[in-house]
Nucleic acid binder design. Structure first.
Length: 893
RNA sequence: GGGUGGUUAGCUCAGUUGGUCUAGAGCGUCUGGUUUACACCCAGAAGGUCACAGGUUCGACUCCUGUACCACCCACCA
């Protein structure tokens, strides 16, 4: 088979992918006796397009999976998509607003119709994502594809909710939450970003006190003023003192509170008023002291009747007016215009988030009712335990600290959302004369009048179950008689493939997702979700900026790159030179560099095939390695090198050191195999060894660049072999400590270095007879060629004295020539030699200066010439000694 | 305010437990080259006091302390 001159990824990739898929290689077998190795693919949001973040994830996970599969494990990579509650709903709503010119799609369509429309949109997106995941070469098991809204996953969500509710871990409460007035829903603490904003900072007179705020419009209901008990300035006031005070809408009665937790006496005036309904800290204080709370701002973001004549105004509108009123009353003390204030903004909807008190569903993270390792722990404690006890390892390790810190600050998790897209809360209410009854369960109890809670669950509630809810048998999930425990125990996939081996994801969702999977999974299944967490860095632009979808000019689109450079090149460019947990920059030249590498491999294979063709050897007929004893020194050394490579790659991959392994492979292929061994083979090829080493390379490289290696494998595989994806990972017992192999190897290295130097000096191509001689059993020619050097050098010296001394070229020629000698003579360390020679050159120059001055004197000239040649001969003598030593070592072998 | 990471050739980055690193790769630059695969190539070269200052050590890019700058994360500074 003749290969084209350059590798054409577009001509191969799709074809190869269907070959793999058709072969069943992706499909894992729950009944297999092999050890399981599972990766749950972090489900991309079903909202749109695959971006580079996904591409990195897919590349990394595919390497894990292919390596595991070839290493004889039962490898399952389970793909899927996430319904991405708020993200999706807001995307679709915006789309409808734009395309259909409907201002409020929720009102126009109503719940059922809107959910239908979102579902349609998601279905289309999921199709796109599926094909994009394939483009990357991802060897995932499509027969097990899941979606967070699948009935079986929904069943798991409901079961977990029920279980948590009956354990008292889920409760309903009036608590302060982050309210997004734009999306009209709560958002979790982690879904908030802060934006710095310069706003005026006002100080007002509040009775005898001065208080400062950036948000005067929330202050209508403030009836408590708080100060630190140790603050000397306010010594004369006691906790509980009341006073009359003129305030925004008239006279109020205010109460003094002394509290040492919320007040920093050094900050500002050392006292403040509180707004429990709209401030997290104030809410905590109000909880502790059992103070009343009043709502000031409505859920629509407008002021409520408590604001008097300001009622109905938006915040932006009310703020200056409130300030103006207080100023008119003479209560405005000062305004600081240089105050920076952080505004909470919703991560998804980008609306300004307002803390509000609202009745919501929460998960209690502190209640100690979780059975874990025969102890009763809280969810928090379990989350800490699994990392501390090393049940789960995080790569890189430093993120463990970040994780612990996050848990320390974790408060009860608000899980209810006032949106329609998602898992509906499995709670039913029935209001009758005696009050409201409540029932928790997927289905309403018998009887009429039950209505379901209108809210849906936080998207992370269902993604927290991802590693195992996807392994629940959908057929079983329909049987409502089964308990959660039954579902787990009876699902073959869960039994075989859980816990998963590694969770690979960006460090930016460590809290969002990884932590919540640990929380939900340990609780629901009693197992850890995964043994290792591998966190990759974020892809950045060449300038180091985040790649954002909103700015396409900075963005590299994997779908444009793949046709141009190939998926293999893209994969390599995202893996090599990138270390876990650190961001990295990606740009086209980098990808082009790896495209060149792929092409290099392609051509090396082409060369091997051509060699075989010339020798009329069918590569597929090459099966067993020839007897080592019959091989030349170079062939043995090359085989030895490839065995060391196998060992390094295998160990490196097992330790998740992907960048290092990638670099090792790159340099082996290019610097060793192509520049060295292939050149050596020209004119004197051992086809069996060539093919063997190349096959090893293809196998080792397959997890990194699956397409090109699979394509080349077709031409190079032995008769009877199947696809490369299903090949066995090469195993060899490397005798690193075998002194003979080591010695052989180092001799070859030495000789090659010497040859390189010769090439520089004399332009001798490595594919000339010299090399053939060197590696034949008769090594005498090495000495002969050495003799040629001497003669050549002598000529150069002759030249040196004929030409003007200013000629730098002559001197440097001498330098290079000498390098050859010393390379053979000394430690073979060219860098060191260069230093030595630099000094030598300086001496020589000085010497030549004198010579130059005395050029007219022929006697002197003759003398000088003699001296230099003598010097050179001395060097030669020792060079020959060294050569003899090499000879002896060779003979001893 | 607390925390984490970074600071290594012009650029982008590696460097696993301190010693084959008197520091590597890719790209870029310069010189030379059409040699039985590959110009998406070959052979070379130039270029770094490994941010700075101390310390530990026989020995530090690698460990410790401090400083500076950059980036990110967390936090209820009203």
């Amino acid at each position: 088979m003749t290969l084209s001159k350059a590798y054409d990824p577009q001509a191969c990739e799709d074809r190869i992918y269907s070959l793999w898929e058709g072969s069943g290689a992706f499909k894992a077998d729950a009944a297999s006796a092999k050890e399981a190795f599972t990766v749950s693919m972090p489900p991309p949001n079903a909202t749109g397009q695959l971006h580079l973040g996904h591409a990195v994830m897919l590349a990394l996970e595919d390497i894990f999976i292919r390596f595991a599969r070839m290493s004889g494990k039962e490898a399952l990579w389970l793909p899927g998509t996430d319904h991405a509650a708020i993200a999706t709903e807001s995307v679709v709503i915006k789309k409808i607003q734009k395309e259909e010119k409907i201002a409020d799609p929720r009102a126009t369509y109503g719940r059922v119709k809107l959910v239908e429309k979102i579902a349609q949109f998601v279905e289309a997106s999921r199709g796109t994502i599926r094909s994009q995941v394939r483009k990357m070469g991802s060897s995932c098991d499509w027969s097990r594809e899941r979606y967070t809204l699948d009935p079986s996953l929904n069943r798991c969500v409901n079961e977990v909710f029920k279980k948590m509710y009956s354990d008292g871990l889920i409760y309903r409460g009036q608590r302060i939450v982050n309210w997004d007035p734009k999306m009209q829903t709560t958002v979790s603490d982690d879904e908030i970003e802060y934006m710095e904003e310069k706003v005026p900072y006002y100080t007002f007179q509040y009775g005898p006190f001065q208080i400062s705020t950036a948000r005067p419009e929330t202050k209508f209901g403030d009836k408590y003023v708080v100060m630190h008990p140790d603050d000397e300035r306010y010594k004369k006031y006691k906790d509980g003192d009341t006073f009359e005070c003129e305030w925004i809408t008239g006279k109020i009665t205010a109460t003094v509170i002394k509290d040492d937790k919320v007040i920093d006496p050094a900050f500002g005036t050392g006292c403040m008023t509180i707004t429990p309904w709209h401030d997290m800290a104030d809410f905590d204080l109000a909880e502790r002291r059992d103070l009343p709370r009043e709502q000031i701002i409505g859920f629509d973001g407008r002021l409520l009747p408590i604001a008097g004549k300001f009622a109905g105004m938006s915040i932006e509108e009310a703020r200056p007016k409130v300030v103006e009123k207080l100023r008119a009353k003479g209560l405005l003390v000062k305004v600081d215009e240089n105050y920076t204030h952080r505004v909470a903004v919703s991560y998804r909807g980008k609306g300004i988030v307002e803390p509000q008190i609202k009745e919501q569903w929460f998960i209690n993270v502190n209640k100690q009712v979780v059975k874990w390792k025969k102890k009763q722990l809280s969810l928090k404690e379990v989350m800490q335990d699994v990392i501390r006890s090393r049940d789960i390892a995080i790569i890189p390790e430093r993120f463990e600290k970040v994780y612990f810190h996050w848990i320390d600050n974790l408060r009860d998790w608000c899980i209810s959302r006032q949106i329609w897209w998602g898992h509906r809360i499995p709670v039913w209410y029935k209001t009758s004369a005696k009050g409201t009854d409540m029932h928790v369960g997927a289905l309403p109890p018998d009887g009429t009048g039950w209505t379901q809670d209108p809210d849906t669950l936080d998207t992370w509630f269902s993604s927290g179950l991802w590693t195992w809810s996807t392994l629940i048998d959908p057929a079983l999930a329909g049987d409502m008689k089964l308990s959660l425990q039954d579902l787990l125990e009876k699902s073959p996939d869960f039994r075989k493939f859980h816990p998963t081996a590694v969770m690979e994801t960006g460090y930016d969702i460590l809290f969002f997702w990884v932590a919540r999977m640990i929380l939900m999974t340990t609780y629901a299944t009693g197992q850890i979700p995964f043994k290792t967490v591998y966190l990759h860095g974020l892809v950045r632009t060449r300038e180091g900026k985040k790649m954002s979808k909103s700015d396409p000019s900075t963005c590299i689109d994997p779908l444009e790159i793949i046709p141009k450079y190939g998926a293999d090149a893209l994969r390599l460019s995202m893996i090599v030179g990138q270390t876990p947990g650190n961001d990295f920059r990606l740009y086209e030249e980098k990808i082009a560099g790896y495209r060149n590498f792929i092409n290099k491999l392609w051509n090396a294979s082409r060369f091997v095939l051509m060699q075989c063709e010339q020798a009329k050897i069918d590569p597929s007929s090459i099966a067993a390695l020839p007897d080592l004893a019959t091989l030349s020194l170079a062939d043995r050394a090359a085989l030895h090198a490839s065995e060391i490579l196998i060992e390094d790659v295998t160990q490196g991959l097992a330790a998740y050191r992907l960048s290092e392994v990638g670099e090792r492979l790159y340099s082996f292929v290019w610097d060793f195999f192509c520049d060295w061994y292939l050149e050596l083979s020209k004119g004197n090829a051992n086809h069996a060894v060539l093919v063997h080493i190349l096959r090893r390379i293809l196998k080792l490289l397959h997890p990194y660049c699956p397409f090109v290696t699979e394509e080349l494998w077709t031409s190079l595989k032995p008769t009877g072999a199947g696809l490369l994806i299903s090949e066995e990972w090469p195993k060899v017992k490397v005798e690193r400590k075998d002194p003979k192999a080591q010695q052989e190897f180092s001799i070859v290295v030495e000789i090659i270095r010497a040859i390189r130097s010769m090439r520089v000096e004399y332009g001798i191509s490595p594919n000339t007879k010299i090399i053939a001689y060197l590696f034949s059993d008769d090594h005498l020619p090495l000495l002969k060629s050495q003799q040629e050097h001497i003669e050549r050098l002598a000529q150069l010296f002759g030249l040196m004295f004929k030409k003007p001394i200013e000629d730098e070229g002559v001197a440097s020629t001498f330098l290079k020539g000498a390098e050859v000698h010393i390379a053979l003579e000394g430690a073979l360390d060219l860098k060191k030699l260069r230093n030595d020679l630099q000094t030598e050159l300086l001496n020589l120059r000085k010497f030549l200066e004198i010579v130059n001055a005395k050029l007219g004197n022929p006697k002197f000239m003759e003398h000088a010439k003699k001296e230099v040649i003598e010097l050179e001969q001395q060097k030669l003598a020792s060079a020959e000694e060294k050569l003899k030593k090499i000879e002896e070592r060779l003979k001893a072998l």
